[in-house]
Design a protein around this nucleic acid. Sequence first.
DNA 1: ATGGTCGCGCAGCGA
Length: 260
Amino acid sequence: MRIATWNVNSLKARLPRVEEWLAYARPDVLCLQETKLADSAFPGLAFESLGYRSAHHGEGRWNGVAILSRVGLDDVVAGFDDSREPDVDARMLWATCGPVRVCSVYVPNGREVGHDHYRYKLDWLARLRQHLEAAHDPARPLVIGGDFNIAPADADVWDIAAFEGSTHVTEPEREALRALEEWGLEDAFRRLHPEPGLYSYWDYRAGMFHKRQGMRIDLLLATAPVVETVTFALVDRQARKGKLPSDHAPVLIDVDTDRL
DNA sequence: ATGGTCGCGCAGCGA
């Protein structure tokens, strides 16, 4: 079972690239972020024609997350599944796809250290941690895929010195990510690829992609039963090339579900 | 080259 995550930076602008990618990568499950669509504008029929069921949670203009699946799509929940006040933004979507509970997340960017949005980011991650503790079991198959807007370690950015004082690499952000890992999630891509220089996001500006100056902020966090059966992991840099690319590349893992 | 790019939506913000 191939599970992927991709921040598409507008699904309206990216639909041809997403369709092309589905055709050649053939993921079983794809988590999308930054669709920037209202639910009424989500192109579900286009995905249906390619063999995918889909669910979307969006508000239009900003944010927006989706899950596509060709192995079933059940028990869909939009937003935090914790009976508390709804999130102000459309950043989270849950669905059960075959044997795996899947969550697509677009973690707040944070904007600047000390900004209200930075506090919102940390609160958002803490709320996810609380929800996992209250309602999930790390012994069961769960994958949270998305744009976490956090580089887990210094090796996940092209030059840590360039990020002095910036969001995405601060200790509170990394601590919030570690809290998810301490509950029972693991960075599945990193487990198979410990080498540095592997990124999932490159700024559009200044030829950052061609200079290989990126950040690895798109993660597939998986519980132990999933992570122990991962046979392959990849950042598809091809999808960052060519005509009208997203500024993020898709990240995928292959899971041997027979061993789940 | 002292700025570089997108997307949204039509100015300027967010990333």
